Computed example of a mutant assay.
Amino acid sequence: MEQLSQSFVEGALLLVDKPLGWTSFDVVNKLKKLTRTKVGHSGTLDPLATGLLICCTGKKTRELARLQGLTKVYAAVFRLGATSPSDDLETEPVQQRPYEFIHEALLQETAKQFLGMQQQIPPKFAAIKKHGVPLYRHARRGVEVDVEPRTIQILRFEIVSVHLPFVHVEITCSSGTYIRALARDFGKKLGCGAYLFALRRLAIGPYRVEQARTIFEWENYIRQALNQLPDASS
């Protein structure tokens, strides 16, 4: 057991396929208990999102800043014809609007307008802080605060399929990009409103979700490895 624990202290990079409903901190806390050392992650995924979460243990946590700066690839579903205060399904959709005039050529043309460097206003329900308090706490209290835009880059914005009111997309973007905010702004450009219906992170830099284990697979792997270690007293 000490041998395995020491390997995690020296540092390991764990690719996790985060399940729906778990926060990134839920994953980190689970791995802390399993590996018995410090653990950090390279970029938050919302509870309603799934997909690749890179976690580092022990001394490997020094690499988190580098990993956080890598480009991200997402598969997402945008729901047209309504908006949401949180820009996703965390809050009830509001402001139902007609979307029947939308056609694929318009979607393709609008997607092209988002390519490149730009300023993006984070969602009101984001975890970033204003006056030392996360934005989502201000929003839940009904307190309006000014949110400063952030510089982001959209490298690829592909319309994968259209089943109105749902639009399936794949996006390659810089670190710090909010796909929820992109769905919101995409709906504004179209004139019918939109919010994020589903999100899955496919890649971070060279790391792909296909290489990842679920948190339950990591738990089984680590427990089996512990059971297979020779008894130090023998």
Rank of each mutant, 00 (worst) to 15 (best):
Y178G: 03
A126D: 09
Q113R: 14
F216V: 12
L52S: 07
L80K: 00
Q119N: 09
T172I: 06
A225N: 13
A12L: 12
E104C: 05
K129I: 05
M117I: 14
R201W: 04
A212I: 11
A111F: 04
L190H: 00
G21I: 04
T151A: 13
K33R: 15
F186M: 03
L164Y: 07
T110L: 08
D185L: 03
D185T: 01
F166M: 13
Q6Y: 13
P98G: 04
G132S: 12
D231M: 08
L31C: 09
I222L: 10
R62D: 07
A198E: 11
I204M: 15
S175I: 03
A203T: 06
I171T: 02
L182C: 00
E210H: 09
H163E: 15
V162C: 06
V9I: 14
E148C: 05
P149E: 06
G11K: 00
K130Y: 14
V162I: 08
Q120K: 03
K129P: 02
Y195Q: 04
L15H: 01
P85A: 13
L20I: 11
L199V: 02
S42H: 03
H163Y: 12
E217A: 11
P98Y: 04
I54V: 12
F125S: 02
G81S: 06
V162W: 01
Y99A: 10
P93L: 06
R180Y: 06
A139S: 10
R213C: 12
Y207K: 06
Q3A: 11
H163W: 10
P230A: 01
R141S: 15
R141L: 15
A212W: 01
A194V: 06
S161P: 04
L226S: 12
L107Q: 09
R97I: 05
T71C: 09
R137P: 08
Q96M: 12
E2Y: 13
E104N: 12
T57F: 02
K60L: 07
P206F: 10
K129M: 05
L52M: 13
Q96R: 15
V167R: 00
G69K: 10
N227C: 09
Y178M: 03
I222D: 00
R213K: 14
I154N: 08
E219C: 04
P85T: 10
R223D: 08
A111M: 05
L15A: 05
L190A: 07
K38D: 10
P230V: 09
S7D: 09
G142D: 12
A65I: 15
G21M: 04
Q118M: 12
Y221L: 14
K32N: 11
S174D: 10
K124I: 11
G43M: 03
E63V: 10
Y74N: 07
F125M: 04
S175D: 01
F8H: 03
L89T: 15
